[in-house]
Design a protein around this nucleic acid. Structure first.
Lengths: 195, 195
DNA sequence: AAATCTCCTTACCTACTGATAAGTATATCC
DNA sequence: GGATATACTTATCAGTAGGTAAGGAGATTT
């Protein structure tokens, strides 16, 4: 079982995800993956028979990453605030860890929605649902415990915040200003959190 | 000069914009435009020599559309609120006027940023800048006149709201809930506006 | 009426897309 | 040590991508 070079699949996924988020689902080809890895085109097909399979794997991978953020449900105001700040740090890291900020895979799925497989849509839908219910819970607990404040329903506020982050990483690409950082600060202020 | 069929260029643009926003820049081809219009592929190339030219025209067209929203600078609180509500209506209309909501061209530009021409990037950058300065001004006037309230700088709040709308139209595609409507309501509440 | 311009068509090109079949070297199992 | 599975390679494919050159029909100008 144990291989030396069986990290090929993992390396394909890594390069694939970068390309996916850098250029969109239709903006990269199997060649763009195989060439830098020094393997043949068909090797990629061996691990991911169709491009849709690769797409699903990329989204699922990101889903697991985000899932780690949302593992433990918050029960106190402190925990809620801590989780929010973890989300903020995550977004800031995502925006700055690479040269030009990579967009969220969800943004790619939404833009290319008309040409992706049902499985990819499904995977994206699940990711949205998980983030929404997690953030909604954090906001609800946080407000109940008096740690944050906002008007309206937690569900709606959660959707709004998620949308803000989704859009903010895109604005960051087009505009000449630190959109993510500005949005994080603004969201925190809107929630009554100190900077 | 006057032609009967010279609306061909306009029809190409119309179909092109729909495809652009439905499937992304790399998600449609010249064939997808020429076929439904009953013309040849090369006819599209006649009006838009390269795909980049078409892309720029699409973004510029949208830019003119949005520019009309932001024509008259607000000076009173009433005007500021009216312009905000105009923006809200615009977003709601954009989200519901078609079957599956079309994303903002800016979202497409951001996702496909790595494979678009410098001119398209430029056009997108200008659009962002125009919307940001307009919304920033509306927010500033509105708060100064006591019609709305929000913490922090108008610029940052403007960026956040723009990002929210950008992301919200994408969430609307992936999630099974009316994201745009929920976000509009939430933004209004956050600004202290009645529903 | 000849020349020109506009708006297209026919015909074609190269490059690349995602994808498959068949072969091969290496390791693992029995 | 023969069989089998894994992880690839080479070779090939039909389809489509964006793009171009040349030509033609019809209106406009001179």
């Amino acid at each position: 079982m144990a291989r030396e070079r069986t990290d090929t699949k993992a390396r394909i996924l890594k390069v694939g995800e970068a390309l996916f988020r850098e250029r969109g689902y239709n903006g990269f080809s199997y060649q763009d993956i195989s060439r830098p890895l020094g393997i043949r085109n068909a090797a990629v097909h061996y691990h991911f028979p169709s491009k849709g399979d690769l797409g699903v794997a990329i989204v699922e991978r990101y889903r697991r990453l985000v899932g780690r953020l949302a593992r433990h449900p918050a029960t106190t105001g402190e925990q809620a605030v801590a989780q929010l700040q973890q989300l903020f740090r995550f977004e800031l890291a995502q925006a700055s860890s690479h040269g030009r900020p990579l967009v969220c895979p969800l943004a790619v799925l939404a833009t290319d929605y008309a040409n992706i497989s049902a499985e990819m849509r499904d995977s994206g839908g699940k990711l949205v649902e998980e983030m929404r219910s997690w953030l909604s819970h954090v906001l609800e607990v946080g407000r109940r415990e008096g740690a944050i404040r906002f008007p309206g329903e937690p569900q709606q506020k959660a959707v709004t915040i998620l949308a803000t982050f989704l859009g903010t990483r895109q604005l960051a690409r087009l505009g000449g200003f630190p959109a993510v950082q500005q949005a994080v600060e603004q969201i925190a202020k809107d929630l009554g959190l100190a900077a």
